[in-house]
Design a protein around this nucleic acid. Structure first.
Lengths: 109, 109
DNA sequence: ATGACATATCAGCCGTCCGTGTGATGTTCA
DNA sequence: TGAACATCACACGGACGGCTGATATGTCAT
């Protein structure tokens, strides 16, 4: 804690800019109802695209679009169903999600 | 934990939609470089608008705009400087920030 | 093989939000 | 009182992102 109460002197105009690029990128991913819903559903275990699309009331291709964003960010992973290979199940990468949590807490913490 | 591994049966199309409205609203606030920088700077103590604008390399009115968004969300609070009343200092509402953390962890947790 | 289903990818439209400019309000100091 | 400064409130232009529709790929059943 540097300055718990308002200062008495003059404003300091030479303060460094905090680096929040990681946090904003992650927040942008969470700032969408569909993507946040996906991440929340996958917290309880894997789900296929059609399941999540039905639950969220969105179309399959739309959900697939958002899953691609989450996949590019490394937050989720796709796995083929052994018995029924036409269903593509998604699961969370818990290690990556843990890193995401820390990066957000670097701003809100 | 409901289903740790991919299921063998058919997809369930009757799953409930998770409620993520609080989380997405908060994430939208964090998904901006200026707002995230403000919240990060205020974690170390109060700052006036001109200080944060200088540090973030943004104009005063722009920072003021974003502060209004954070103020409407209840995350920050404005306090007049006793000695120098022309400077308006902002501080975080730590209780509200704690609630914000929990709401985000409801999705990422 | 053919058709039906699940998912992926791409292009285009459209809404929303960010940054800016301007004027108004309030505070300090001469 | 008047000038300079800090902040706010509002409206405008542009860029970014989400939804959609069409098309493509791969899988299962008949």
């Amino acid at each position: 804690m540097a300055t718990p109460l308002p200062v008495v002197g003059e404003p300091r105009l030479d303060l460094p800019a905090p680096d929040v690029t990681d946090a904003t990128a992650l927040a942008a991913l969470l700032a969408d109802r569909t993507r946040a819903g996906i991440l929340r559903m996958l917290a309880d275990g894997p789900h296929c695209v059609c399941e999540m699309a039905a639950a969220l009331g969105e179309r399959d291709n739309n959900v697939s679009n958002h899953l691609a964003r989450l996949r590019d960010a490394g937050l989720v992973r796709a796995i083929r169903h052994e018995a029924n290979a036409r269903f593509l199940y998604y699961e969370r990468d818990e290690a990556a999600v843990a890193v995401a949590r820390e990066r957000l807490l670097a701003v809100l913490g």
